[in-house]
Design a protein around this nucleic acid. Sequence first.
RNA 1: GGCCCCAUCGUCUAGUGGCCUAGGACACCACCCUCUCAAGGUGGCGGCACGGGUUCGAAUCCCGUUGGGGCUGCCA
Length: 460
Amino acid sequence: MPPPRLRFAPSPTGYFHVGGARTALYNWLHARQHGGELILRIEDTDTERNKEEWVDGILSAMRWLGLDWDGEPVRQSARTAMYVDAARRLYEAGLAYACDCTREQVEARTRGNKTPGYDGFCRDRGLPLEEGYALRFRTPDTGSTTVTDLIRGTPTFEHSTIEDFVLLRSNGSPMFILANVVDDADLGITHVVRGEEHLSNTPKAVLLWEALDPARPLPVFAHIPLLVNEKRQKLSKRRDPVALELYRDQGFLPEPMRNYLALLGWAPADGREVLSLDELLAEFRLEDVNHSPAFFDVQKLTHFNAEYIRSLPLAEFIAVAQPWADDVAGFDPAAFTTMAPLVQERVKTLSEVPQYVDFLFLDEPVIDDQAWASIAGKDTSAAILDDAIAEYPSAPWDATALHDLTLAIGERHGLKLGKAQAPIRVAVTGRTVGPPLFESLVVLGRDRTLTRLQAARGRL
RNA sequence: GGCCCCAUCGUCUAGUGGCCUAGGACACCACCCUCUCAAGGUGGCGGCACGGGUUCGAAUCCCGUUGGGGCUGCCA
């Protein structure tokens, strides 16, 4: 079998969302695991809604995910002549006809019909193919078309339920279905892998494909289940906050995103969930993809992200996390490097990094109100701080010594270490949660620690 | 409304007629560990939408019902 040729065909009408990303991933996996090619085709035939910035967004999102493509992206807007030419051939062969009906006229005529859609009013009027007239495909009146789909089986559509659909708008520009089919044929596409929302349009595509070139074998179709929101509706660019870049900007890594997306609708034979790209490439099977829609669950994505972050070699974690910590005033790379291992095992997203280390860089910690209230309300807080202020100056400045010393201070006041460390943590970091305290104090230094303890004691 | 697709714990899934008293993961709860928080460990909660068939036997096959979704545009 010759290597397959796939295409990912997004339209630049909004930001690139996770549903598109998964479609791209499935296309990429199938192409690459069979030594085939992946064409990136920008479906920008709707000039009203397309924006160049969205095209850039698609390209950068693909690169971020690590999905490459072959050759230059194909721009449909640059291939209009080819679609119009195909339309003209259809018109001349009598397989399509010109139409001047307005939407209002069609609605007025067809109101109450059992089979909705265009009524074929212009079929035999012999209107010329020129500006001002739309071109419609002449759908067969009888018979049916069966779509052969790797995932769905063989859904059959009666021709009587398919209206004479528009190929060219009255301004002469091609519609999606025409451009789509002409391009798939011209580019030698062997597998059409796309979202299930296109399944209903596929018989039209098959009809068109056969009308254009009956000798050319049809591509293999694979309609993958939709990604849905919590209301089980198809993910929408406008409605749902699922832009890929949104996740990138929140500190999600591309690897866990890719891993999670692959598992939304597919699973390996055993129970593994963390799969490398190589493992996905080896084990993914398009024909094993699920049939039912999947909810995009940020909580599970977050879990994957945390797992990947923890599994990073320390140097790599520092490299990806540093830009986030760098935003904090007074950022100190050496101090950050020391704290990094303790931060790495705690953050679920990179955006959480600053809150674990900012106290090291700022002149004074930002004291969280709730955290302060939690120690201000306890009468032991002052005594703990007093003892620490008295004894820290002469203590060996290492984590073990500080641990033991603080443990002793706590016992003196009838507190376990968990309680005893609380006022010190809040005084020094401003928060009740954070990296291990005594390691933090070591990095902070004795002088700054004492200054903060005294400041907090004064505030009590 | 018409056409098409789909239906296992809250979520993602394993399951392709007997291995299922339905397995795993996320989330949630409890306990353990523990300087906070995580991580880790142990345990728990929780599901085959419903009704008919077929079969010695059904989550798995068939039919119907219900529910959800997609398409139905001179959007893609």
